[in-house]
Design a protein around this nucleic acid. Structure first.
Lengths: 135, 135
DNA sequence: CAGCATCCACCCTGATACTG
DNA sequence: CAGTATCAGGGTGGATGCTG
């Protein structure tokens, strides 16, 4: 039995960690806002409500599938509201909820840090690349 | 020729957007810190320098491949320093650079927001799931 | 101790076609 | 207009085996 101990302990560690990670609020939120389209949609809606087609135009590079998927998730998370107007043709408006708006400052802080320090990062990368630690 | 216009305009839009996204500092930084292991490594090093084995133990669930890869990227970005002591056996210490430390407040802000609002998100999810908009 | 190289399974993404 | 359904490809991460 002892032969499996090491292997199983590893598994146990992994599982425990996975559980820890899965339940970590910071991770959950980071995973969400780091999504390529999520950040773009939140930013777009930060300027005010938009219709589906409006978002599609505003973000341009997004496929319908991804836009819809992103909006569904954001709606599910309570960050975005979806308002359907049963006219002909139908009209759907998306807007940030208060919860969604409360996330904007974080995104903005990240943006600010990025703009402040991105040059240092690029410089570090250049140095690193020109002086490869492993020849 | 006109038949290809729409399709090509789409491509152009996508490419332009890809370029925009790729050059967007906020995106670059978000992509990095949102990495599963990056955030854990930065957090671990936030308490002080650690050796490779120390990190491995501290983070537990990480594979060597991912830990090494993560550390290389962080080193390349100038967020983490790598100090090799040529003893027998070799010893390698990792620590946050000033640049790396300047990132901690952002992570902390995200963490704080997460802890403050995660319940609202969970609540919204429950509501959404129990009342499926699309039957 | 601190890695590197390889292979593989999975998920995410995007393209495409169709609908109320 | 605002989606849904389906399928194929690529990138990501993990397990494994080997080195200075």
């Amino acid at each position: 039995m002892a032969t499996r101990t090491a292997e199983e302990r590893r598994r146990a560690e992994r599982e425990a960690y996975d559980a820890y990670l899965a339940s970590c609020p910071a991770r959950q939120v980071l995973d969400r806002i780091s999504d390529k389209w999520v950040s773009l949609v939140l930013n777009a809606l930060g300027d005010g409500p938009l219709r589906y087609s409006g978002l599609s135009r505003r973000i341009a590079g997004v496929s319908q599938k991804m836009l819809t998927q992103t909006l569904r998730n954001l709606e599910r998370d309570g960050l975005v509201s979806r308002t359907l107007t049963p006219s002909v043709p139908v009209r759907v408006d998306y807007a940030l909820t208060p919860l969604g708006e409360s996330l904007l400052p974080i995104m903005h802080a990240a943006k600010t840090w990025a703009e402040t320090h991105i040059q240092e990062i690029h410089a570090a990368q250049s140095t690193y690349d020109q002086n490869p630690p492993r020849p």
